[in-house]
Design a protein around this nucleic acid. Sequence first.
DNA 1: CAGGGCTGACGTCAGCCCAA
DNA 2: TTGGGCTGACGTCAGCCCTG
Lengths: 85, 85, 70, 70
Amino acid sequence: MSNPRKFSEKIALHNQKQAEETAAFERIMQEVSVTRVIGMQPPRMTSAHLSPHPQAYLRSYLGGSLPNVNQIAANPQIELHHQGG
Amino acid sequence: MSNPRKFSEKIALHNQKQAEETAAFERIMQEVSVTRVIGMQPPRMTSAHLSPHPQAYLRSYLGGSLPNVNQIAANPQIELHHQGG
Amino acid sequence: QSPQQMAEEASRKRELRLMKNREAAKECRRRKKEYVKCLETRVAVLENQNKQLIDELKTLKELYVHKQND
Amino acid sequence: QSPQQMAEEASRKRELRLMKNREAAKECRRRKKEYVKCLETRVAVLENQNKQLIDELKTLKELYVHKQND
DNA sequence: CAGGGCTGACGTCAGCCCAA
DNA sequence: TTGGGCTGACGTCAGCCCTG
């Protein structure tokens, strides 16, 4: 049953749910942040686009490592390949 | 203090917060729904736009009563940004 | 007043206080139980709202990038 | 066995059981208190996440309609 | 300041439920 | 099936805070 009788199990279940929801929350927030950043660029060219290192430009706007950026890199306008790890 | 000692006050406070958050939640959901609906139209004209009653057309897509939709249906090109937050 | 009457009076007062505190404790436990149930319900409601908000955010985000590519 | 030893044995067993249940009740109250605090913390966290999600949804929505009007 | 309303914490009883 | 672990509910004590 999803509603255990022992308090320890209830606490463990709530901690698990909270961890999952926090992960999903942070993930979607980062994705939306990335979407908004790349969405602001196309209408106006920035000097950063002339830079030989566009990856560094994006990483300057965003904080941590962005594993999902690869999907966004599928956009034909911007090329963003792995920096080799 | 925001953390009362009596349980009745705690319950009242939680009910109040829940009501406010639920109201804000339903409001933003309806707004986003409206935004998505009107955002799908401009690229291609639908036969519904030739109808003499566009309000009825919108109400067919959306559920409850939408007081803001009237303004949107009247002037589709206006910007709707209410309290900024 | 005789000490006998004093003892009876004290005993009656004590019993009355115990009775009041007994019922008060019962009501207190009832309110606490209701409060905990309120907390659990609130958690469930907020959980559903979070999921719906995340889904709507995903949808609007993809719609936004699609508009971007048009 | 004499009834005297029987009574002592029963008394010792009862006292041992009371002692165990006493400590168990104490631990149980501790876990319940921790659980309620966990619930309150969870409510606060979900509340903040809801507000942030709504704000982000508002921002993305206005950005979407702006892209629409361009 | 004393008195009373509420609640935190304790010990006890009764009952549920699972592993032995 | 049953003993033991956990918990729900009770009554009591102690303490806080507010009102008289």
